[in-house]
Every structure is written in structure tokens, then in C-alpha cells.
């Protein structure tokens, strides 16, 4: 299925939506779907939620907020659980995004919660990244720490109907990195996702950002996607190799006894694999 998709990817506008839990990301995505549809664009949504570290299950609840377009054939919503894979999350998401892109959706929106490393790596899949904050979380400073502010192209202060909205707006403005002159200026847009306030402005900015992107920038996002999938596939191969080869037992024992750090042992194993599998010249 994937083989059929490659060669047809790279046409969709991939939009990332991230921010703290409960900020209103899904509600905003629902509203953005409406804007896309009014503009005659088809949309696919990939909504990522974390898997429980205990037992690996997950409650995927984003769909509940996206019911306005439940029967529209030009709208597709897929819920994805992070399945706790280190780095694998972004590769699994990348695969889904590629399939939807290859399928011909005009836009693919990826929603992830939080502001950790995993979310940031997912956001590299997107050409346009929206960071959604809401009053009363004090998330602005957290986001600065996590480095989300650097990768965001558009800031949204959602729940502008909240009494603390003015204050949050001020601290978001303060937390923003000073504009580096020239190039794209990251706008801050206030929205009330539950009643569509500010959503058409947001959509206009999303399209504007897409329009001013260098085509090479878009190609870069597609390459990042392919590279993340490659990295995951390599990790899988290496993992199978190391678990099956009895030779690696001695390395494992050295780790167990404290003679070698796990990292050094892994590097050693990597060299062994590389030397053995080097093609004959």
C-alpha cells in the first residue's frame, strides 16, 4: 500500500496543531475543517493521543469534538495512539500522513497534545505549525522551555472568552521570540473555537503561510517524513538482528556486570553490525 503512495506524496498542505491538554485543539480543528470545506478543500485529520504507559491502551477522544463533519466524504478523521514507541510515534504518524497525502487530500491536519520532544518531532512533519494556548494554564513559559515557540508559525490564544484571556495574551506576547526581521512574522490570533470567533482569520493565516513557503521547504518536510520512517525501519532491523544473534550475549553480559555502559555497548554493537553487513567490494 505504501509503495503505491510514494511518488504521489508532497502535494498536501500538512498543518500541525499542538498545545497543552484541553487548550481547545480538537474544537479548533473542527472549526478549521469547516473553513477548508467552505473554500472547497478536502481535509484529513490525524489526531494523536498518548498511550497509557501501563498496558499500552489509550482513550482517543479527539473525534468527539469533530462531529460537525461526520458525514462529509471530503473529510477523514483518524485517531492514532502513540503506542509508547520511542521515536516510533513520529514515524507511524508520518506513514499515515503520507497515505492521506498520496490519497489526494488537499490538507492534512495533525493534532498532538503537549510540548515534549515527541510532539516537536511530529511537528517537523508539518509545513505549517500552529501552537494553541489557552488562558489559565501558564503554559507560555513551559512552551518557551520546550522550544515549541521556535517551531510554531502561528500562535493561537484560544478561549478568548475566558476572563483571564487579556492577561494570557500579554504573557504570550512577552514570551514570543523577538521577530528576526524579514521573512515570516509569527502572528498571534485570538479565537473562541466553540463559536468560530477568529477562526476565519486563523484559516487565512494558515493559507498565507502555505502560499509564501518556498517549494523547497515543502519538499524538505516530505524528506523529513521519509527520513523518520527510514530511521524507524533501521531501528527495527537492528533490533531484530541484535536480539537474534547469540554473539551479542557477551556484550549484554558486560552491560549487566557494569563493565560497559549501555550506550557504549550499543555503539559497539552498531560497529559489529556495520562491519558484518558491509557489502563486498
Amino acid at each position: 500500500m505504501l509503495a503505491a503512495v510514494y511518488g504521489r506524496t508532497g502535494k498536501a498542505h500538512v498543518v500541525g496543531v499542538t498545545g497543552p491538554p484541553g487548550a481547545g485543539k480538537s474544537t479548533l480543528v473542527n472549526a478549521l475543517i469547516g473553513e477548508h470545506r467552505r473554500a472547497g478543500l478536502s481535509v484529513a485529520v490525524v489526531a494523536v493521543d498518548p498511550s497509557s504507559p501501563y498496558g499500552g491502551g489509550a482513550i482517543l477522544g479527539d473525534r468527539i469534538r469533530m462531529s460537525d463533519h461526520a458525514l462529509d466524504d471530503e473529510v477523514f478523521v483518524r485517531s492514532v495512539a502513540s503506542r509508547g514507541q520511542l521515536g516510533g510515534l513520529s514515524s507511524a504518524t508520518a506513514r499515515v500522513v503520507d497515505v492521506l497525502d498520496g490519497f489526494g487530500f488537499n490538507s492534512v491536519i495533525v493534532e498532538t497534545v503537549g510540548a515534549g520532544q515527541a510532539e516537536i518531532s511530529i511537528m517537523h512533519l508539518a509545513q505549517t505549525v500552529i501552537f494553541v494556548a489557552a488562558p489559565g494554564f501558564g503554559d507560555e513559559t513551559q512552551a518557551v522551555k520546550a522550544g515549541v515557540l521556535e517551531i510554531a508559525d502561528i500562535f493561537v490564544l484560544n478561549k478568548a472568552d475566558h476572563p483571564m484571556a487579556k492577561k494570557a495574551d500579554r504573557s504570550l506576547h512577552e514570551a514570543l521570540p523577538a521577530s528576526s526581521g524579514g521573512g515570516w512574522r509569527q502572528p498571534i490570533i485570538s479565537t473562541v473555537a466553540i463559536d468560530n470567533t477568529g477562526v476565519s482569520e486563523l484559516f487565512a493565516k494558515v493559507r498565507e503561510h502555505w502560499a509564501q513557503l518556498d517549494p523547497s521547504e515543502c519538499a524538505r518536510a516530505a524528506t523529513v517524513r521519509a527520513q523518520q520512517q527510514l530511521a524507524a525501519a533501521v531501528a527495527e532491523l537492528a533490533s531484530a538482528y541484535v536480539s537474534e544473534e547469540p554473539d551479542f550475549e557477551s556484550l549484554a553480559k558486560q552491560v549487566l556486570s557494569g563493565q560497559l555502559s549501555l550506550k557504549s555497548a550499543a555503539e559497539e554493537a552498531f560497529h559489529v553490525i556495520a562491519s558484518r553487513t558491509r557489502p563486498v567490494e
Binding site: I59, L71, R78
Partner: peptide
């Protein structure tokens, strides 16, 4: 039930619906 299923290792997609068609669509998409 959703929480218990999650704890049992299931991935649970939760939704509200007005029409049975919405459930069918979600079951297919997901």
C-alpha cells in the same frame, strides 16, 4: 467502560452521534 478497556490495553475511540451513519463512517475510518 472506556477507562477499563484502556487499562486492558485496548485503544478506545470515543464519540457521540446523531445518526447511525456517523457510527458506520467512524468504524470504517478508524
Amino acid at each position: 467502560v472506556a477507562k477499563k478497556m484502556r487499562d486492558a490495553g485496548f485503544e478506545v475511540i470515543f464519540m457521540n452521534f446523531l445518526l447511525p451513519e456517523e457510527v458506520i463512517r467512524a468504524a470504517l475510518d478508524e
